[in-house]
Design a protein around this nucleic acid. Structure first.
Lengths: 330, 330
DNA sequence: CTGAAAGCGCTTACAG
DNA sequence: CTGAAAGCGCTTACAG
């Protein structure tokens, strides 16, 4: 049962295809009685315009690719932020009448697919999420000539992006710990090929440097397991430490677990602060102090940036502010 | 800078458009020297076939819509399962050469958009996730004539689906608690307009009925907050209860929080069991016993079901088994 | 094995 | 305001 075409609707309504097209596209220059009769035919036949035909001539797809360029270990898409970001982006794009085409770029093969897909004219623009700092994908996509915006910082010079003020957020956490009287403040970093992770580490270092204290650093990869492991490492390195700033909440949750296992009390013995303020932060024991990054806001900002580019707007970089949510862990 | 067309490639290679098309589509019936010269032209010009033109004539899009039909409160897409499911589905579809078009169906307006999009021939098939039992969307989509498969049970008679054996999973949890010597076992349900929630409640009831014990039920909606609230309610209703089965882990996490707040020990005073075995279950205090539902497997099964339908296969219903992961909370 | 031609279902100047 | 016609960029019988 083939779907009816414009042709069929025109025949039914006794008008030309042009007129049907105009009515369907809501053009003003149509006589009321023609509009009327066309609308009826459309309704009766259950006519829906064929997308491919329309795209072919208009060169507009009303679709946007959201490319989640996940590092191999799946840091980001395993993250609670994944759903927050994907949802916020979807809602915003939908409100703007754009369809979301979700693409996971993991393997080299899937990256090649993404490039081909975008170059094939399937979408009007591309939004990138969660890139390695050195990911070549942004630059490759920018080369297609389509509008591209990134949810986080990239190193492609011509791809505008939105980002958190990661360094400032980290500094906020460290200063809070200092105010609480903590002396030996360690940090657990994210994977340092991500800008976010590097910037949060920088913020931590800068805040400590201001007070002449030394850094105590363990590497993590943004997963709970790595946070637990890094905490163990830190305690070995410096049994005297009295605070830890984890570069995201998942690692902070892992750190809490290790501290409990070795019998250290939080916050009495060791204070813990995370980053992102995911929903689970309010449900840890004790509840986790965290830097709140308004992910949904960031997602909205990126969408607006991209929509602006599609409409031919400017390519400004946007930086989102942070706040600290103090709970029981510090 | 318009992208080169088949025409341009043909001119460059000095052959017909037909030949270029054949080479690009990997047809066997092409002389090696023609293939050679076409490939070179393609490479030099950076030719990528226009998707709209191709779809228009082949009536194939190589795309699949993944429709997350979330209840208004956003139960599902706030859920850690969202990312698990979306990722597993994306990977599987990508491996099959299908593009994922993610659509959130929340408001009536966005539901209408989904229907129109699907009817417009944008996709080869539809995968539904997270429906109310009474959601009219599955039936509406089935009416477009396109292949539709659901990640969970629906009430549309002609939409095949994959589902967990929810009742059996719940019964597993209850029997485990009985074996541990618990006498007064309560449950916190999910929103009862979801089949999953109803079936888990049924399983709980059936398992208790077998032993002649009575049900103690509080309603939740699959969120942490509702779990915390329901737990409070249960303790008021029956201060003697010694176990609770929450219909998902998030609510179990909320229940743990309430129990801690009122000074009850887990599992000494009250044992807690959840459902889904999300990653966070291993990180609660105490670590949460949970019914493991192989989400990724379920996602894969649904994708295979849908791909089968697209290829013209059968419409079998699939039921996935469950297991219990025993941790410290019971 | 190759090419000329028709056609997929739309939109959009262009006349009238 | 309306319609006839061209054209978007491809694929695919059909001849040869």
């Amino acid at each position: 049962m083939r779907r009816p075409t414009l042709e069929v609707v025109a025949a039914r309504a006794g008008v030309s295809r042009s007129s049907v097209s105009r009515v369907v596209n809501g053009e003003a220059t149509v006589a009321p009685e023609i509009r009327e009769v066309v609308m009826r035919a459309v309704r009766e036949l259950g006519y829906v315009p064929n997308a491919a035909a329309r795209n072919l001539v208009t060169r507009r797809t009303h679709a946007v690719a959201v490319v989640v360029a996940d590092p191999p270990q799946g840091v980001v898409s395993d993250d609670p932020l994944f759903s927050t970001v994907v949802r916020a982006v979807s809602r915003e794009l939908e409100a703007a009448g754009k369809q979301v085409v979700l693409m996971l770029a993991e393997s080299d093969r899937s990256r090649a697919r993404v490039e081909e897909y975008v170059a094939g004219g399937h979408v009007d623009g591309v939004m990138l999420v969660a890139l390695h700092g050195t990911d070549p994908l942004p630059a490759a996509l920018a080369r297609t000539g389509l509008p591209v915006a990134s949810f986080n910082r990239t190193c492609a010079p011509d791809v505008p992006y939105v980002e958190l003020d990661n360094a400032a957020g980290a500094a906020l956490a460290v200063r809070h710990l200092l105010e609480r009287g903590r002396r030996r403040i360690a940090t657990i970093t994210g994977p340092l090929d991500l800008f976010e992770a590097r910037e949060r580490l920088d913020g931590y270092r800068a805040a400590l440097r201001d007070t002449g204290r030394r850094s105590i650093v363990a590497l993590g990869d943004f997963t709970r397991a790595s946070g637990a492991e890094a905490m163990r490492q830190l305690l070995e390195d410096d049994p005297e430490l009295d605070a830890v700033f984890a570069a995201n909440d998942l690692m902070a949750i892992g750190a809490l677990r290790t501290l409990r296992q070795v019998g250290l009390r939080v916050p009495e013995d060791v204070a813990v602060v995370g980053f992102d303020d995911i929903e689970a932060a309010a449900y840890t024991v004790p509840a986790l102090t965290s830097v709140r990054s308004p992910m949904a806001d960031q997602a909205r900002a990126t969408v607006r940036l991209l929509l602006g580019l599609i409409e031919g707007g400017s390519r400004d970089r946007v930086v989102m502010p942070n706040a600290l949510v103090v709970r029981d862990s510090s």
